[in-house]
């Protein structure tokens, strides 16, 4: 009975939400960028006099002086235009890692979770896959401003390597304190960059490095630096979470 009512509510809410939102949303084929913040981000005209109307000056491979200058607009949004959100996001992850640690701290002595004896193939291949995974992760977060990917993605890949280590050998234990310190350092680094922006340009999280040529590895000002820090931080955090779960008895 309860489930039937729940189902009815489900349908009712779907009706209300769907038909209500449908009337305002620009969906599918009707969706355009015109007049949205996203358009200005793509045109890199946020700080110009008329963000939506001015003609595009973007030129891949040669542009040197436009906002952020990251070829990947997504990255420009995440670490540039809305970098403050990302700072918060990193903090949320940091908090979650801390929270998991706090929860498991209560159980006192940390003992390694007893898993089944690892598969032979897994334990052998892990040793040789590991550097590759870490390298790939590092690649992903260092090239975030040029290609799809970035600090979060790269960090997750590296954390997967740590998980692999846990799976492959019962003896492995991540250096918990080291991870925590790395987290702290990279987080503080992000903030210090932001504060440096405040000191040098008057705006928190503003770019103060030369922005280079769009598409070059050394371009987009602080974006790659921040993304590398985020990559380190995310990898440390997720590894920390993994090791906390593994250490739980």
């Amino acid at each position: 009975m309860k489930k039937v009512i729940a189902l009815l509510l489900f349908l009712g809410l779907l009706f209300f939400l769907g038909t209500g939102l449908e009337q305002g949303l620009k969906l599918g084929d009707r969706n355009t960028l015109a007049g949205k913040a996203g358009e200005a981000y793509l045109k890199r005209t946020v700080n110009s006099a008329d963000p939506s109307a001015s003609p595009s000056q973007v030129e891949y491979g040669s542009e040197t002086d436009i906002e952020e200058n990251a070829a990947n607009t997504l990255t420009a949004v995440v670490v540039g235009y809305r970098s403050f959100d990302t700072l918060g996001e990193v903090t949320v992850l940091f908090l979650a890692a801390t929270g998991v640690m706090a929860l498991f701290f209560a159980s006192g002595k940390k003992k390694r979770l007893a898993l089944a004896k690892p598969n032979f193939i897994l334990s052998v291949s892990s040793g040789f896959l590991l550097p590759l995974i870490i390298l790939f992760g590092a690649y992903v977060f260092t090239h975030g401003h040029l290609t799809p990917g970035g600090g979060f993605q790269g960090g997750t890949i590296i954390a997967a390597a740590v998980l692999l280590l846990y799976m492959a050998g019962n003896a492995y234990k991540a250096p918990a304190t080291g991870l925590k310190v790395l987290e702290g350092f990279s987080g503080a680094g992000y903030l210090l960059i932001g504060l440096a922006g405040l000191l040098l340009t008057g705006f928190f999280l503003n770019n103060f490095l030369p922005s280079g040529k769009m598409g070059a590895l050394f371009s987009a000002g602080v974006i790659p630096v921040v993304y590398i820090l985020i990559g380190l931080k995310v990898s440390a955090e997720l590894s920390g979470i993994v090791s906390d779960y593994m250490g739980e008895d």
Binding site: Y60, G61, A71, N72
Partner: peptide
């Protein structure tokens, strides 16, 4: 939304 060699402007 990424500028590449293919999508330059």
């Amino acid at each position: 939304p990424i500028y590449t060699d293919a999508v330059k402007t």
